[in-house]
Amino acid sequence: MITLDGVSVRFGAYTQIDYKQLLFESGQSVAILGGSGCGKSTLLNLISGIISPLCGDITVDGTVISSLSQAQKDAFRIRNIGFIFQDFKLLEKMSVEDNLNVLSLEGVNVKDSGQILAKLGIAHKLKARASTLSGGEKQRVAIARALVKHPSIVLADEPTGNLNYAIGEQVIIQLLDACKGKTLLCVTHDERLCPMFDRVLRLEEYASIKEANIHA
């Protein structure tokens, strides 16, 4: 289970996002919708510990990650959270295999990578350089990297943002299939994909943005 309680985050001196209390049940798939700049990606970054809140508590599966040090957050993320980015975030000059093996730097067992790639239909691309893959293939590699460590939580930040609808739909189907039993929070702009998720969260109802000189 993931909970956010009284969480605010600030960017520079002018923008602050305040989140209302939020709760995500374990094993649920949630589509997070919202306009640009409403704090969707920020929400995922907070939950994963990539950024720290100004105030409030973020609890992930019993761990108050907002109180952890940066090193502890890194360790928590590598063990428990799979993160999928809109722009894939792959080591472009390295192979698909290397992009998965990079996790072994932190002691993650990546022995299931072949199986996961096969499930996503790109096992034959194992030795291919990431830069030579299509957008859809790259996103599948990013999904495989997120899943290879068998995380309990998967955060996907607009995973279909750089793909056309047909490929995007396929990717979401595969993602949902691969994430069965896990908590999946998926940020998307595409309402057509929402019916596939257990729950749809419209973030505007849970987050307010202040844009002013806060110190003024």
Binding site: Q70, A75, V102, L105, E106
Partner: peptide
């Protein structure tokens, strides 16, 4: 970008430094 990427997916600053 590469360092940022590695940090984003959870590779610690220490490991990045070591690499």
């Amino acid at each position: 970008d590469e360092i940022q990427l590695m940090r984003l997916i959870g590779i610690s600053a220490r490991r990045v430094r070591q690499v």
